[in-house]
Amino acid sequence: MTVTIFGATGTVGRQLVKQALFKGYKVIAFGRNVFTTDFPKDDNLELLQGALFDEEQVYDAVKGSNAVLSAIGGAFDGTDKARSLGMKNIINQMDKAGVERIVALGGMGILNADDGTLLIDGENYPQQYVPVGLEHKKAYEHLKASNLDWTFVCSPDIINADATGEFVVNADYPPTPNKYKINAGDLALFMVNELEKNEFIKLRVGISN
Rank of each mutant, 00 (worst) to 15 (best):
A184M: 01
A161M: 11
D121I: 08
K88L: 06
G133F: 07
T4A: 14
G24W: 10
L189E: 03
N193T: 14
V27E: 00
S155D: 04
F39K: 06
I120P: 01
I120Y: 09
N66S: 12
V168K: 10
E199K: 14
Q93K: 12
V130P: 02
V153G: 00
V62F: 10
D149C: 04
S65R: 00
Y180T: 06
Y59N: 03
F200A: 06
I159T: 04
G116S: 01
G165E: 03
F167Q: 01
E100K: 13
V27C: 02
L189V: 04
A75H: 11
S84R: 00
W150K: 00
S155C: 11
R204M: 15
G133T: 08
M1S: 06
K23G: 02
G206F: 14
K197N: 15
N112M: 12
Y173I: 14
K18H: 11
R101Q: 11
Y180A: 09
F22E: 14
G133V: 07
S65A: 13
H142R: 00
E55K: 08
N44P: 07
N198K: 15
P40H: 06
V3F: 08
Q49D: 05
P131I: 11
V132N: 07
A163C: 04
L45Y: 07
G107R: 08
T117A: 09
Q127I: 13
V17F: 13
P177W: 14
E46C: 01
L134P: 04
V27M: 03
P40V: 09
G78F: 11
G13L: 05
D38I: 12
E199Q: 15
G7T: 07
F200E: 01
D162I: 06
V153F: 02
N89H: 05
T79A: 04
F30G: 02
V12K: 00
K179D: 12
Q127C: 01
Y25R: 06
A61F: 09
F35H: 11
K88F: 05
G133D: 01
A145C: 05
A184C: 02
V168G: 00
Y173P: 00
E135R: 10
A113T: 04
V168N: 07
V3T: 09
F167W: 12
G116F: 07
N160C: 04
